[in-house]
Amino acid sequence: MLKVENLTKRFGGIIAVNDVSFEIEKGEIVGLIGPNGAGKSTLINLISGFYKPDKGKIVFEGKDITKIEMFKRAKLGIARTFQNSRIVSNMTALMNVLYAIIGRENGENISLHEAYVESIYYLDLFGLLKKRDILASDLPIYELRLLELARALALRPKILLIDEALAGLNPVEAENVSKLINRIKEEFNLTIIWVEHVLKVLMRSVERVLVMHYGKLIADSTPAEVVRNQQVIDAYIGEEAV
């Protein structure tokens, strides 16, 4: 479904993503982990179109999307969330979902009323219906994460790129969010790439793990195997030693 070939991205002298290749099948839920500065977020940004790669190819459903603009990728069905949940804080929760729906339909094929109804559906899915008229800046972080997932789902994506959905949540909340992610994956038939720092929760939820270190992909297997992989252990121990 998603194929990444020899993807490379440089920032000045630093190679943030170095010759990364992998393939993801439809319906998979894949964890993407690695120490700080490993290039996970850069990879997400490359796939969603925030950055243009210096080298390599991104193929989505058999179509080369390397040079396609960000908004067109969203229309193709690539949705993402952000590391620090970039919710438009000046708008209410409902409006934050609303614009994803209007944007998805190009603003043409859907009336404002229909979009309202649909966004209420997505808010309800995440239990945010009561909070629909509250400004996003007044929501606690847990609800912001949920709102962000609701917004991403409103795009009706085929693949969902999650960038740290659990950061800053307490264990109970983190557990809830990870359950929700698994639920929406089943319900909406999604493919998910999930970048996370909270490894314990992640490892239980995903079927396959990609490990990055200094921009390179160093492991690609099941969670059980990854924790035994010597290279991965070295990478994480190296981080803690520093």
């Binding site: 179109g49 960000m70 908004f71 993402r80």
Partner: peptide, 12 residues
């Protein structure tokens, strides 16, 4: 409010 967000969610 936020151009990049708008682009991420499918707005031209």
């Amino acid at each position: 409010e936020d151009e990049e967000i708008a682009a991420t969610y499918g707005t031209n």
